[in-house]
C-alpha cells in the first residue's frame, strides 16, 4: 500500500478566523454522480478529553472541556451533530473511579446545545475492561448511522488492549460494506489511526490495514480519528485520514523527539495546541472543509 503524507503547505491559513481550513475529498468526481436530496451540513469533532487527568501539561484540566463546549455552543450556524472520537476519560485502575469519571463527563457533555451527540471509545476509556464501563454509559463501541445521504461507520480499535479491530468486528465491517453501493459516501470514525502512522509510539492499529483494504473499492471514503493529540492529514491511496487535536494536552509531531511526552503548557499562550474541528460536509461533491478551532478565542 502506498502511503503519502499531505504537504502541510497545502493548508489555507485564514487570518483572523482563529482556525485553519483544509479541503478534503474528491471534488468533481462525486459531483457528477450526484446525491439527490442531500444538503450540505456541519459537524464537530472533539477528541481526547481525558477527563480525570491531572498534571502540569494542563493546569486547567478540570475546565478545558467546559470551555470547548461553550465554544461549540457559540458556533453559528450550529452543527447537525457533534462526535467525540475517544479518550473521553483518563484511564484508571479503579472501576468505580472510571464510572465516576464517565458520569461527570457525560453530565458536562450534556451542556452541548446540539441534540445529536455521538461518542466512540479510546483506549483510556475501554482497554482495561474491554469496553465494559464505556458500553454501560455510551452504548455500542462500533455502529453506523446515516445523515444527509452519507454513511458513517464507527470502528472500535481500542476495546482490545492490543489495539486491534479483531476478526469479529472486521467480519461485521465487511458485511456492512458489502451491502453498500460502490458510490456510497462513507465517513469512518475511529480513535487510533488505521494506518501505521508511528508504530514506534503505538500510533497504529494492529489490523488496521485489513479495514483500509476493505474500504479501497469505495472511491468516497474519509477517516476522522484522534489518539495522537494533534492535527494530522494522511492518505492511504485515495482515502484521506484526518487526526484531530486534543482537549487536554498536545503531543509532539511523529518522530520529532525521542519520546512521545506531552508538550509543556505555555502560560503565555494557555490552551495552545488544543482545539476542536468543525467539518463542513458537502455530500453532493463528497467534499469536507475542515476548520480547526481553538478552545478559547485569542484576546
Amino acid at each position: 500500500m502506498n502511503f503519502s503524507t499531505i504537504d502541510r503547505r497545502k493548508f489555507l491559513k485564514l487570518a483572523g478566523v482563529g482556525g485553519a481550513v483544509f479541503a478534503s475529498g474528491l471534488p468533481g468526481w462525486a459531483e457528477a454522480q450526484g446525491a439527490p436530496g442531500a444538503a450540505d451540513f456541519l459537524f464537530v469533532q472533539l477528541s481526547d478529553i481525558h477527563w480525570g487527568f491531572q498534571g502540569p501539561p494542563n493546569p486547567d484540566a478540570g475546565g478545558t472541556l467546559q470551555k470547548a463546549i461553550a465554544a461549540v455552543n457559540e458556533l453559528s450556524p450550529q452543527p447537525d451533530f457533534v462526535i467525540f472520537t475517544g479518550d473521553l476519560t483518563h484511564t484508571t485502575d479503579d472501576p468505580q473511579e472510571r464510572r465516576r469519571r464517565m458520569t461527570q463527563f457525560k453530565e458536562i457533555a450534556s451542556a452541548i446545545k446540539v441534540k445529536d451527540v455521538r461518542f466512540i471509545p479510546g483506549e483510556h476509556d475501554a482497554s482495561l475492561d474491554r469496553g465494559k464501563a464505556y458500553s454501560e454509559f455510551f452504548g455500542q463501541t462500533h455502529y453506523t448511522f446515516d445523515h444527509q445521504g452519507m454513511h458513517f461507520i464507527v470502528l472500535d480499535n481500542v476495546s482490545d488492549p492490543a489495539a486491534a479491530l479483531g476478526e469479529e468486528q472486521l467480519a461485521w465491517f465487511k458485511t456492512e460494506l458489502d451491502r453498500l453501493d460502490r458510490d456510497t459516501r462513507i465517513v469512518v470514525f475511529t480513535h487510533r489511526p488505521l494506518f501505521d502512522l508511528m508504530p514506534q509510539w503505538d500510533w497504529a492499529t494492529r489490523d488496521g490495514a485489513k479495514a483500509v483494504e476493505l474500504l479501497m473499492p469505495f472511491p468516497n471514503v474519509t477517516v476522522f480519528y484522534g489518539h495522537i493529540h494533534q492535527e494530522n492529514h494522511h492518505a492511504t491511496g485515495h482515502i484521506q485520514h484526518h487526526a484531530a487535536k486534543s482537549l487536554i494536552f498536545p503531543l509532539p509531531a511523529p518522530g520529532s523527539q525521542p519520546k512521545r511526552t506531552p508538550l509543556a503548557w505555555n502560560p503565555e499562550q494557555p490552551y495552545s495546541g488544543l482545539g476542536f474541528r468543525q467539518v463542513a460536509a458537502k455530500p453532493a461533491a463528497y467534499q469536507f472543509d475542515l476548520t480547526e478551532l481553538p478552545v478559547v478565542k485569542k484576546a
Partner: peptide, 10 residues
C-alpha cells in the same frame, strides 16, 4: 509495550 496496560503505558 503495545498492549495498553494503564496510566503510564506510554
Amino acid at each position: 509495550c503495545d498492549i495498553f496496560c494503564g496510566d503510564k503505558h506510554d
